[in-house]
Design a protein around this nucleic acid. Structure first.
Length: 497
RNA sequence: GGCUCCAUCGUACAGCGGUCUAGUACAUUGCCCUCUCACGGCAAAAACAGGGGUUCGAGUCCCCUUGGAGUCGCCA
């Protein structure tokens, strides 16, 4: 049996977003399921919009998401860039021209605009009417003499219906007359997408075209190209879009959808992103919450063509954050630390492309340089973060002392006056504690003190928390004191005296 | 506007003609746990877009309306 081949073919015109991750997920999972191959190809035929500098980060993003079988990192990378395959397209264009299945059209862009305007006014479908389809040799010669450029158009049959069966959307039927003779090669010699994909997919032996729904409407054109060559038509599977959370329309580069790179830089886990996507785009019955959070293997095993939904789903940041937090809690503390460090050395710095990170950078570098702190911090933080960058905001107080003048002590249920007094008391007993002090020692000493002065334990804890961390929220207080160490704790209390 | 497609709580999914008094998760609210914040546990509030059919019976099938998405390039 023929091996099933899948592919993803992004164009390097901007950063990848969640929609690309969805394409990756479904293609990869299906390829795996059928013991097939998964190919990455770069569609860079649009000279005006290509941004070579994004190619590298794009490849990086895919590497981050998971793996692929063939692509620009393979032994013969040129095969996977359309811009390196121009000679191939030319060969096939010539073939079609010789066979009389395509023709050269000499209209200028202005003339075309005029033709379309006229159609609009006459309330006719906006389809190229094929004026240059049957030019006489004399006419062609005349245009050539004029020095006109030409585009190559495919001869689309009249009065024909193009029918295909989409795995997700079912039977699709389109009237060829609504398509018209479309361009397959630009006047600058570059092929048009709808032509190049077909040639590439055929040459690479792609059996399954799985892509976003915007291509559903392109498919009939591509089928016409397949038919012109007499090639086997692959199976088409189109999946629905992910819509913006707060504005109309689907996620897109143009609309500034948050890029995969940015999610990555903020410390989201690829498995959480994939998990989130599979949850919003496939139909499963989730008996309990535990069924919704899945490991990478479980995620890939869940994917099945029959489960892919037709409906568009709106992106939901809160749920992604929850999902990411769940995946963080799925990691052992050792793994968590390891992945945090890895993130801190590379991924975090991508954030610089999107926002100012100087503060966070300081905290991160301090953290990474202190193995002692790094070991103690994750047991306290793993239930308190939804993404890695939260570690930095949560631990800022370790490296920045609080502004003592502006603190609000009201959560202690005591007046500012009383609070300052008690800080003095705390300083006294703490300065007498025998070192080294572990967190149970801190705790018992402070509980004792609370009994002595007749405060609720919680109130005194809060006082200490605010004076030490500058905030009414923090990881568990005594562990925090232990991490800061005797010297620093005393120093901080001294500031109030 | 033409064409293609979609429509269940705020969001995402479950439901595939009777078992729906419509289930689950996130978000929201309350309670429990608790040194704060989280995590975890328990509970509450919250939806079949509207109108016609078909049928003994419709969230489930059909049609219309409305709403949403995509697309109509020498973009991909």
């Amino acid at each position: 049996m023929k091996i099933r081949k899948f592919r993803i073919a992004p164009s390097p015109t901007g950063y990848l977003h969640l929609g690309h991750a969805k394409g990756y997920l479904i293609n990869y999972a299906l390829a795996k399921k059928y013991n097939g191959k998964f190919i990455l190809r770069i569609e860079d035929t649009d000279q005006k919009r290509n941004k070579p500098e994004v190619i590298e980060s794009m490849l990086e993003d895919f590497r981050w998401l998971g793996e692929y079988d063939e692509g620009p990192k393979s032994a013969t990378p040129d095969e996977y860039y359309q811009s390196q395959r121009l000679h191939i397209y030319q060969k096939y264009i010539d073939h079609l021209l010789n066979e009389g299945k395509a023709y050269k059209a000499y209209e200028t862009e202005d003339e075309l605009k005029e033709i379309m305007n006229k159609l609009r006014v006459e309330n006719k479908p906006l389809v190229y009417p094929g004026y240059h389809r049957d030019l006489t040799p004399e006419q062609i010669e005349a245009y050539e003499k004029e020095g006109r450029k030409y585009v190559v158009r495919l001869k689309v049959p009249k009065n024909e219906k193009i029918v295909f069966e989409d795995t997700v959307f079912g039977r699709i039927e389109v009237d060829a007359d609504t398509i018209g003779d479309f361009v397959i090669q630009r006047s600058n010699g570059y092929p048009i997408y709808n032509f190049a994909v077909v040639v590439d997919d055929h040459e690479m032996g792609i059996t399954d075209v799985v892509r976003g729904r915007q291509h559903l409407i392109n498919t009939p054109k591509q089928i016409l190209v397949y038919k012109a060559f007499g090639w086997d038509i692959p199976r088409f599977t189109h999946f629905s879009d992910i819509l913006n959370e707060n504005k109309p329309g689907k996620l897109s580069k143009r609309d500034g959808a948050k890029s995969l790179l940015q999610f990555r830089a903020e410390g989201y886990l690829p498995e959480a992103i994939l998990n989130y996507i599979v949850v919003i785009s496939s139909s499963f019955h989730f008996a309990s919450r535990n069924d919704e959070v899945m490991t990478k293997d479980q995620i890939f095993n869940q994917i099945d063509e029959s489960k892919i939904l037709k409906t568009n789903a709106k992106f939901n940041q809160a749920k992604l954050d929850w999902m990411n937090g769940m995946h963080i809690r799925l990691l052992s503390l050792g793994e968590l630390k390891e992945r945090f460090i890895k993130w801190g050395h590379t991924d975090f710095y991508y954030l610089e492309r999107f926002t100012d990170i100087s503060n966070q950078k300081y905290v991160l570098e301090k953290l990474l340089s202190d193995q002692h702190i790094l070991d103690k911090v994750f047991p306290l933080l793993n239930t308190r973060i939804s993404k890695f960058i939260d570690v930095l905001t949560n631990l800022q107080f370790l490296f920045f002392r609080p502004e003592v003048n502006n603190l609000d002590f009201s959560p202690t249920n005591h007046t500012g006056q009383e609070c300052i007094e008690q800080i003095r008391g705390l300083y006294d007993i703490m300065s007498k504690l025998k070192r080294p002090i572990s967190h149970p020692d801190w705790e018992s000493a402070i509980r004792l003190k609370a009994d002595e002065i007749g405060w609720k334990h919680g109130d005194l804890f809060m006082l200490l928390r605010i004076s030490i961390t500058g905030s009414r929220y923090s990881p568990p207080l005594f562990e925090v004191l232990e991490i800061l160490g005797w010297d620093e704790v005393l120093e901080r209390l001294k500031m109030f005296l």
